[in-house]
């Protein structure tokens, strides 16, 4: 077992009745890394994270999390993991300070009061310590949740769509905080479907329909996709996109602001296919595909077997 890996699991599988929510997902995350789990809604991100911290019993899979067996030693894992649920899950009828105090007691922290005070100050919650959690806005709720996840000094943080419903400024602050903590050696596994957030992760794992479709750094994921992308600008782009999508060589044609990104797997076939359209008033330009192009590409692709490691 590699000591440097905070998470190292193979073949993680979870069924809900007939539904295969997570299908043989392998993942390894190095200590101190920020790993993003990307995927559309219902792709199995939450289910995967819940299996890691023992909230769901896996139907298959093995490996370790922080050096503990991921299937059998969930008690020990829970103690060193901070899990931030997708939905705000603190007690709305307790104040910020009471929530933190409760969590601190649950982890049987020594010097509980100091831990609570420090955590309040660190995340700028001290001024609102006596406010009921239920009355907080999205950004403050998320801060409280993060503070509570951190109070027992975990080695790994599992954050499930932590910035949903949070304004852009609070989101940026939040990511600053995450990178700051990662610099201190904390490992992060963050589920998200925001592209800008994906770009901020050291490594990415992309799942769709329970299958792991791509993983690696942002650049690696883009490269693995072997996508050729053209950017088109000009008038009547939606109409053009409609026509292009009917061509077999065109895998996708998606609007990006004032341009249309046209992508395909085979560069030559794509070039031939678009040749009749390359005339004024449209300007065509071959570009490096971005993460978002790949994201859309993977999402629209029919379920494929997981790629080799």
């Amino acid at each position: 077992m590699d000591e440097q890996l905070a998470i190292d699991v193979r073949g993680m599988t979870k069924r809900f009745g007939g539904l295969l929510a997570v299908n043989h997902v392998d993942l390894s995350v190095r200590a101190g890394e920020v790993c993003g789990v990307l995927g559309p809604n219902g792709s199995g991100k939450t289910t995967f994270i819940r299996m890691l911290c023992g909230l769901l019993r896996a139907d298959g899979g093995s490996g370790q999390c922080l050096g503990h067996d991921v299937i059998r030693e969930s008690e020990a894992i829970k103690r060193q993991v901070g899990y931030m649920t997708q939905r705000f899950s603190f007690w709305e009828d307790l104040t910020i300070a009471e929530n933190l105090d409760f969590v601190a007691r649950m982890y049987a922290l020594e010097n509980r009061r100091r831990a609570v005070t420090e955590s309040l100050e660190r995340l700028g919650l001290a001024g609102r310590r006596n406010q009921l959690a239920g009355q907080l806005s999205g950004g403050w709720k998320q801060r409280l949740a993060l503070a509570a996840c951190l109070i027992h000094h975990p080695r790994l943080l599992l954050l499930d769509e932590p910035t949903a419903g949070v304004d852009p400024k609070a989101r940026r602050d939040f990511w600053e905080e995450i990178h700051h903590l990662a610099g201190e050696g904390l490992t992060f596994l963050i589920a998200t479907h925001y592209m800008d957030e994906a770009e901020r992760c050291h490594r990415l794992a992309f799942i769709s329909g329970g299958n792991l479709l791509a993983r690696g750094t942002s650049a690696e994921v883009v490269e693995q996709a072997h996508l050729t992308t053209w950017s088109v600008s000009g008038p009547d782009l939606p109409e053009l996109g409609e026509q292009l999508r009917r061509l077999p060589a065109v895998r996708q044609a998606a609007s990006f602001g004032a341009t249309l990104h046209v992508s395909g797997d085979d560069p030559r076939a794509l070039e031939q296919a678009i040749a009749p359209f390359r005339q004024p008033p449209h300007q065509w330009r071959l570009i490096e595909p971005g993460l978002e192009d790949v994201f859309i590409h993977l999402m629209e692709r029919p379920a494929a077997p997981p790629p080799p490691a």
Partner: peptide
Amino acid sequence: ESGTMENLLSMPT
């Protein structure tokens, strides 16, 4: 129902 049980379960209780 309010989701706090998930939180409680993720703690060592």
